[in-house]
Amino acid sequence: MTDLVAALGQRTLLGLQGLGRAVVLVLRLLAAVPAALRRPRLIIEQVYAVGVLSMVIIVVSSLFVGMVLGLQGYYTLVDFGAAESVGTLVALSLVRELGPVVTALLFAGRAGSSLTAEVGLMKATEQLSSMEMMAVDPERRILAPRFIASFISVPLLAVVFSAVGVLGGYLVAVGMIGIDAGAFWSNMQSAVSVRDDILNGFIKSVVFGFVAGWIALHKGYEAEPTSQGVSRATTMGVVHASLAVLGLDFLLTALMFD
């Protein structure tokens, strides 16, 4: 019993220590941002790696999510004689929630995991250490451009997700079910507000991009320098980033749409 308590306490302390180190890392990354911005080429390369290469999965999933929303929304709303509101339902769900959240989850799985593995392997193979010995700060040269790239990419991906998702909903509702296109759009336009919905959704995705990039890099940078350690860090990175995104989504939603 005392063993259990001791083990629990030990784990708590370890968790707190990890949190502390993560906070220290993010502060150092933020401090490194101005220096990193002076080398835009490094950032562009990373936007390509985490952003452009995630486009396919984002476009395909958002199209399907939008189509499912259109179909389910129609089945539910038609019972209340409000089938025309399906556009509103699709757009609000996407812009407020699914766009930012699903994008961040997909990003954590697709790009975050590769960031963790890349940084973890660079650490395990002493590349980061040798960089330090060459008087090059790995936080500034390796981590900061990746952090900035995540921060740029996730909001852009989320916006694309929402737009393509609405298109998917349109294809189903108007193309398949035969709802009037004018009613679809005008219902949507009267219900969706730029400030309350689109801006708030955008703010969410900025926060998610920050958190997903931060957690992925932190896990890689703190990975135990063995192949097992790197693979564990990659898994934990995706799990923690996903949990953080969902938890933060609740908080932000409560704050924004009270």
């Binding site: 392997l121 660079m122 193979t125 002493e126 250490s129 040798s130 330090e132 010995m133 060459m134 008087a135």
Partner: peptide, 26 residues
């Protein structure tokens, strides 16, 4: 450190850069 060079046991070359770019890096 700019006045020091260190040869790591593993070599620690940057795996995503060619031989040329590795030497050019510093």
């Amino acid at each position: 450190r700019r006045r020091m060079g260190m040869l790591f046991q593993s070599g620690a070359l940057f795996t995503d850069l060619s031989v040329f770019d590795n030497v050019a890096f510093p």
